[in-house]
């Protein structure tokens, strides 16, 4: 993994994925949930997406938390991409409408997933879209890739989700991402539905694809120096004075 921030470790907050999944079958981890302040029963108001019954929340296993954080990472990425494109003024016509609608959807997905995860939610990364939000053609090919990858990511995780309530919510997002994908593909003149069966990808495959874009800025990089300190150097700035 070349990108040091977006690794399996980053979304697999406490190693749930790397444990053998079978070992946590039936494990409600109620103690962990209580400590993490994760319990979130009932509706979350308005159009919030991921409302669970109290009993469903109790059953939210560590691996489901990891899967939701994986989904949240992808939604952060999409929301940030589309939101930046709104500000960059490179789109018009139906492309601009697509962007506006989908940006709102992805931001809502972020809110819903953060709400469901509570304090267990991963933090929003910082992004660098490298000009892809500033050119209609680059935007279009990037959006196709993001939406198709989102479909494959959700498809890949669905069978691994333990909680039925979480599964329903994931399914409801999956189909919307598929609609996004078909929409932008059609705008671009590509096949909206290239196959009879969509193919899932594993979490690792999706994270690798995302890392290759280099859209997510590394967290631990040397801080950019906009300022300097000459303490101890004895010299002064060479301004004209």
């Amino acid at each position: 993994m070349t990108n040091e921030t977006l690794t399996l470790e980053a979304v697999d907050v406490d190693g749930a994925i790397r444990e053998t999944a079978e070992a946590v079958a039936g494990d409600t981890r109620a103690g962990f949930l209580a400590k993490a302040g994760l319990l979130s029963g009932g509706a979350f108001g308005g159009s919030t997406l991921l409302a669970f019954t109290a009993e469903a929340a109790q059953a939210q296993s560590r691996s489901d938390v990891a899967i939701l954080n994986f989904a949240l990472t992808l939604e952060y990425l999409e929301a940030a991409f589309y939101t930046e494109a709104e500000e960059m003024g490179a789109l018009d016509g139906e492309l601009a409408l697509f962007n506006q609608v989908v940006a709102a959807h992805e931001r809502a997905h972020v809110r819903g997933l953060r709400s469901a995860l509570g304090s267990a939610a991963v933090k929003r990364p910082r992004f660098d879209f490298r000009g892809t939000t500033e050119s209609a053609s680059a935007f279009t090919s990037t959006a196709i890739a993001l939406e198709d990858t989102g479909v494959q990511a959700y498809s890949g995780q669905a069978p691994r989700i333990k909680s039925d309530a979480v599964l329903v919510s994931a399914g409801r997002i999956l189909t919307v991402e598929a609609r996004h994908a078909a929409w932008i593909r059609d705008i671009a003149g590509q096949d909206p539905a290239p196959r009879a069966f969509d193919r899932p990808l594993t979490m690792r495959q999706v994270l690798a694809a995302v890392a290759e874009t280099r859209f997510i800025r590394p967290a631990r990089r040397r801080r950019r120096r906009q300022g300097g300190s000459n303490t101890g150097s004895g010299t002064s700035p060479r301004f004209t004075g």
Binding site: A145, G189, R214
Partner: peptide, 27 residues
């Protein structure tokens, strides 16, 4: 590098999904 990375991402996604034929309209 940016475009290569984008193409790579599109390729990974498209390779898994593609197969039904060429783009429908003139590019």
């Amino acid at each position: 590098g940016v475009i290569a990375a984008l193409a790579a991402l599109a390729l990974i996604a498209a390779a898994a999904l593609a197969g039904a034929g060429p783009a429908r309209a003139q590019q």
